[in-house]
């Protein structure tokens, strides 16, 4: 968090731009993307045009902006990019569980984990018969 210098494309463009450091530009980008996120929901058409912002476009924008903002906060503000790799590995450790929960519970309506494919569920019949 604001301790070490990092290197990369983003840094080569923004670090030092206008006499400001990478954290300032990360902050500005986060603000702009948030504005974009709110505007995508607020406007039905692209301002000044008749082009409709469809539900799927809004959905894609929300996910896309979320990823960009998440990366900006984790990589620069939380400084995962400049810190030793072990912190990134620690941060990624629960990802498997999170994905399992999102897939096994969140996206498995209506059966949840009971309706998962056969190849990843225990042999219940065998268990019951035994």
């Amino acid at each position: 968090m604001g301790e070490h210098k990092t290197s990369g494309i983003f840094e080569s463009i923004f670090d030092g731009l206008g006499g400001r450091d990478i954290y300032f530009w990360n902050f500005i980008i986060l603000m702009v993307f948030t504005l974009f996120e709110v505007a995508a929901v607020f406007f039905e058409t692209i301002p000044g045009t008749d082009i409709e912002i469809t539900l799927y476009a809004v959905w894609a924008i929300l996910i896309g902006v979320g990823i960009v903002k998440g990366y900006g906060i984790a990589a620069y503000f939380m400084h995962l990019k400049g810190d030793p790799r072990i912190y990134t590995r620690t941060a990624l450790f629960p990802v498997l569980f999170v994905l399992l929960m999102l897939w096994g519970i969140g996206l498995s309506n209506p059966g949840a984990v009971q309706n998962l494919p056969d190849w990843c569920t225990p042999n219940w019949d065998f268990a019951v018969e035994r």
């Binding site: 569980f97 999170v98 929960m101 999102l102 096994g104 519970i105 969140g106 949840a112």
Partner: peptide, 14 residues
């Protein structure tokens, strides 16, 4: 904490 919020989020998604 990530796990805690992931629980809320997966329940919501479900």
């Amino acid at each position: 904490e990530v796990m805690v919020f992931a629980t809320f989020f997966s329940s919501y998604l479900r």
